[in-house]
Design a protein around this nucleic acid. Structure first.
Length: 578
DNA sequence: GCCGTTTTCGGCCCGACTGTTTTCAGTCG
């Protein structure tokens, strides 16, 4: 098993943490951390690059020294330098950094002064009342540590985007009640539409920051106030999520929005461009000397450093700044581009709503088409359709379409389709004769997730050999935070799809978002188009499209890269194989 | 340790809040 990029990144991350605790030079620490930040976002496996003899120093944030270390890791699976620093700094000190309130300096002070090497040691020192005796620590710090240790439940987990939406909506509503608010929005990874968010960042434009912060910390769902100043405050909600508030004057709105949206790596890169141009960029604006030259809008910030506006979803320092400079940013797909949904269920299997109800809901969204893709017979637990029942559904859809044609003057119709199971041997779960009567076929894996990679890959490619195969649904089977993707060579699958005129789905369910953003980008680079589909199991499920759009945008996809941005006739041409 | 339309040496993003201090270091985002 070759070493994965994220494992290599984890090694550099650990080195950065331990060196920082030890008090190493800050820029050296940052170099490791930046390398660790870049590596997981690379399109290629470092192991493959090393095997191909590539020059790793061409990668951003990788110089001679780190390139050499990557080679050692790939070849031996470990890094002597990490072992050496572990000898000097107990690795278990890292967990103290996650507690909050303690940074590298004070962790080292606890280690040197009290022999603390772990959370358990810290607990002992706090209980014994020895912490406040250390220089730089006082009664308040000791009390705060006691609090945090009592509540400690392991490193905080990230919150799925859909849950974050549910938490933030009432909070924004509540904050609007503060006087004098000119503008209000959620920034951070929420605005960048990451799959999950670590915390929520709320930005307010208002001349009376104190009043807003005051109202913020008084919100009913607040469990704990972590910080409370005039222009900035942090709380933890009862749900466990941390929310940071920042209040700025209207003239700084754009600068603050840019700063607070991140990512951190993107911000640093933009600020660096500022420095190169003799400019200072902060959350208050862009300054030449003491003179503010930009700040009211985000566009003005980018313009000040010679760039066009960069969409929040792209701001990860993964090449978007270079692309912006070349004028090569993609025109990202938007909700308005979507003309239909190609994966949805009804109460014929495990959906909640009837065929007619799903049709009405899709038409109400302004779609031109909705593919009904109920499960097939192998999926017994949901009473999947056999050929007879599917034939009945086909007839029902024909009848419904006659009515819909009248109702919507030909502007909307249901597509006859199926989510057909891919069996273990790569055959499809229904006979070709019935599949041939459908407008399109979505195919997916629902069992035997644990096949070895080559067999899982062969299984899917064999299925694609069937000329009725159109779209591979939820291509890796992952459930965010709950189930790892099954072992499959996604690049081979993509190439096979491309050769056969098949497509991959980007499943928009917030718990799936399968493909990942990196896989979307990889597909685009290969020239393979994707379908963004909700896999809706109810009328409300059709509205999950926004999560798929966000993911697609993070994956650099334009409308042209997405097949369900096509009018129906063009979609039919794309789906035609032969 | 990385990096280069000032540079292969000498820089490296910027500001708010807190607690422990009498002017600032540490932490955080």
């Amino acid at each position: 098993m070759t070493i994965q990029n994220r494992e290599i990144a984890a090694i550099f991350e650990e080195i950065a943490d331990l060196l920082e605790i030890e008090g190493a030079e800050a820029f050296r620490v940052r170099a490791y951390r930046e390398a660790a930040g870049v590596i997981p976002g690379l399109g290629e496996d470092l192991a493959d690059l090393v095997a191909a003899g590539a020059d790793l120093t061409e990668l951003p944030s990788v110089g001679e020294a780190i390139a050499k270390k990557i080679e050692v890791i790939v070849e031996t699976g470990q890094l002597p330098q990490l072992e050496a620093v572990r000898q000097r700094v107990p690795p278990s000190l890292r967990e103290l950094l996650h507690l909050g309130g303690l940074g590298p300096k004070r962790v080292w002070a606890l280690h040197e002064g009290l022999g603390v090497a772990s959370l358990a040691d810290l607990r002992g020192a706090v209980e014994a009342g020895r912490v406040h005796e250390l220089p730089g620590f006082g009664e308040k710090t000791e009390a705060q540590l006691r609090e945090r240790l009592a509540r400690w439940q392991g490193p905080s987990s990230r919150t799925p985007l859909i849950e974050a939406e549910g938490l933030v909506r009432p909070l924004l509503e509540y904050l609007r009640g503060a006087p004098g608010i000119a503008d209000l929005t959620v920034a951070g990874s929420f605005r960048r539409r990451r799959e999950t968010v670590g915390d929520l960042d709320i930005l307010v434009a208002c001349d009376d920051g104190g009043a807003v912060a005051e109202r913020f910390v008084g919100y009913g769902a607040v469990a704990e106030v972590l910080a409370h100043g005039e222009t900035r405050a942090s709380v933890r909600l009862r749900s466990g999520i941390q929310v940071d508030l920042r209040v700025v004057p209207t003239a700084s709105w754009g600068a603050a929005l840019h700063y607070f949206t991140g990512s951190k790596a993107h911000n640093v890169a933009v600020r660096r461009r500022g420095v190169e141009r003799g400019l200072k960029i902060s959350e208050y604006g862009v300054y030449r000397g003491d003179e503010a030259i930009a700040g009211r809008t985000e566009e003005s910030i980018y313009a000040a450093v010679g760039l066009p506006f960069i969409a929040p979803e792209l701001r990860e320092d993964r090449g978007e700044i270079e692309a912006a400079e070349r004028g090569a940013l993609p025109a990202l797909v938007t909700p308005d581009d979507i003309r239909g949904d190609l994966h949805a269920h009804t109460d014929a299997t495990d959906g909640q709503d009837s065929l007619a109800a799903m049709a009405e809901a899709a038409a109400a969204l302004g779609y031109e088409y909705l593919a009904i893709t109920d499960h097939t017979k192998h999926l017994g637990v949901v009473h999947g359709l056999d050929a007879t029942r599917l034939a009945a559904q086909i007839d029902a859809i024909d009848r419904l379409n006659e009515r819909l044609a009248e109702q919507y003057q030909g502007r909307f119709q249901i597509l006859k389709a199926s989510e057909v199971d891919i069996l273990e041997d790569g055959s499809l779960d229904l006979p070709d004769e019935i599949l041939a009567r459908l407008d399109l076929r979505v195919a997916s894996i629902h069992y035997k997730f644990d096949l070895p990679e080559h067999r899982q890959t062969e299984r899917v490619i064999r299925a694609m050999d069937n000329r009725h195969f159109n779209i591979l649904a939820h291509p890796t089977g992952r459930l965010i935070g709950a189930r790892e993707p099954y072992a499959i060579d996604l690049e081979r699958v993509m190439r096979a799809a491309l050769e056969r005129g098949c497509f991959l789905e980007l499943n928009a369910q917030p718990s799936r978002l399968d493909l990942t953003e990196l896989a979307c980008k990889q597909a685009k680079e290969l020239g393979l188009k994707v379908a963004i589909s909700t896999d809706a199991h109810s009328r409300a499920g059709l509205e999950m499209m926004r999560f798929g759009i966000g993911q697609a945008r993070r994956g650099w996809l334009a409308a042209d890269d997405v097949i369900n941005t096509r009018p129906l006739a063009a979609l039919r041409r794309l789906l035609r194989r032969d």
